[in-house]
Nucleic acid binder design. Structure first.
Length: 272
DNA sequence: ATGGTGGAGTATCCA
């Protein structure tokens, strides 16, 4: 079967419920993975989302900030939530799709919201950056994620808050000391990806020497003029699933929707 | 040279 997965840092699901409706009306992905829902699970607008055609949900939310969710046309076999760095932050949710979703063989789907890391790229001076680096180390050491990437059937998406490649940012030189593109965090993200044998499918489609962004700061007067973007949002496939990657699209125009998120949705289609 | 914006929840923290 063909599966379309969307990933989007929506920056408050309640404030932008209409934009979620627009995304699913226009693109009709089978599953939407959200980050920064900023919504406790008991306040999540499940009814409105079910009416949009997504009756199945996997939530991991908290009050005020962070929070991830998966909204689906297809039923899940199971739902899992993991905590990292001995914190209660809601930054991960995973589901298994199986026979009930029409799959002959199960597929795991992971959604992550990796810590942004604050402003100062020095783990001694900035605890948030230290947390980000620890989080990436913990992911790289996660045996099950590694096993899934190498030999399992798995897809991993989310706001990873790292732009690893030179052309994942508007200026490699000017961002080398800016959190999201510093060598230390890029190395850790890449080490995690390699440990799991994960394939960066967005870059399967768009060559590494072409610019590719999914985020533009709110702090630009006109994001289209300066176009100072970064690729913070990612879609990875496990090695066995990578040959089934069909296509992806970055919904850049969503950055100009009314009251937009600073991230835009990324959609990826797989033959499973 | 360094501030700019936006969301949550109502002072500031977080991005």
């Amino acid at each position: 079967m063909r599966l379309c997965v969307a990933t989007w840092n929506i920056n408050s699901v309640r404030l932008r419920l209409d934009l979620l409706g627009r995304l699913v009306a226009e693109q009709a992905p089978d599953i939407v993975c959200l980050q920064e829902t900023k919504c406790p699970d008991d306040k999540f607008p499940l009814r409105a989302i079910a009416e949009m055609g997504y009756p199945h949900a996997a939530l991991n939310g908290q009050k005020g900030w962070h929070g991830v969710a998966m909204l689906s046309k297809l039923p899940f076999e199971s739902i899992e939530r993991r905590a990292f760095c001995n914190k209660n932050d809601c930054r991960h949710v995973a589901v298994t799709l199986g026979a009930a979703a029409g799959l002959d063989s199960p597929v795991e789907l992971h959604g992550f919201y990796i810590p942004a890391g604050g402003d100062e790229p020095d783990p001694d001076a900035n605890p948030k950056f230290a947390h980000k680096l620890d989080f990436l180390d913990e992911l790289a050491a996660c045996d099950r994620l590694a096993a899934q990437g190498r030999s399992g059937r798995a897809i991993l998406v989310g706001d990873l808050n790292v732009a690893p490649l030179e052309h994942d940012v508007w200026s490699h030189k000017q961002l080398l000391n800016v959190v999201s593109h510093t060598p230390v965090e890029v190395d850790k993200l890449t080490a995690w990806q390699a440990a799991g044998g994960w394939v960066d499918v967005m870059r399967r489609q768009v060559p590494a020497d072409e610019k590719l962004y999914t985020w533009w700061s709110y702090r630009a007067a006109d994001w289209t003029v300066s176009n100072r973007g970064r690729r913070l949002d990612h879609v990875w496939a496990s090695a066995p699933l990578a040959p089934g990657f069909v296509a992806m699209s970055v919904l850049t125009e969503a950055r100009s929707w009314p009251r937009p998120s600073d991230h835009v949705p990324v959609l990826a289609t797989f033959d499973l």
